[in-house]
Amino acid sequence: MIVGSQICKRYPGGLEALKNVSFEIAGGEMALVGGHSGAGKTTLLKLLSAIERPTSGSLIVNGQNLVALRPAALPFLRRNLGLVFQDQKLLFDRSALENVLLPLEIIGLAPRDAQRRARAALDKVGLLTREKTNPIALSGGEQQRLAIARAVVNRPTILLADEPTANLDEESARQVLDLFIAFNQVRVTVIIATHAPQNLFPGMAVRVLTLNHGTLTP
């Protein structure tokens, strides 16, 4: 459950990226955040993952008010979120499997259990045969799927993805989006930022929050 009310975000330079944004996303819901470039989509996702803090308003994620979050509580909030970044942020000094293992090492899972779970996640995104490959040797679509595997290996309750299909051809984009649908079907809340929400899930009734210069359009 995510509740934002009257959220404003002003960056240190004075630019107001979000103005009075209020919304509610129920647990297990799938929602798209749309809008032109610079509308504030990434900013909204950054607020949801506590990478940035609202300047004013309140934002409650998994029962925690992110405006007043103690720094020590931040890691534990993040462990319940799956983040797929616009630039993926994969680590190129290790194998695909080790990339997926990182979140499990962070929660201190026993190595054997971690290996099993990481392999299962790789299998889910169709990359099990590439587990030893360095991500640099993966295609754009494969890298995106690897980033998703890393985001979901911890079994988060909320999955946030920023332009996950931006650089992919139709076939790869389809594979990635099918993954999101699959996760949503097991009651993971999925929030995807995209500049073209109408093309993402043709024929499906998916909720869209459209941003326009920092304000939500009804």
Partner: peptide, 8 residues
């Protein structure tokens, strides 16, 4: 990255 995915 570690920090973004919940490392203390």
């Amino acid at each position: 990255v570690a920090r973004l995915i919940g490392a203390t």
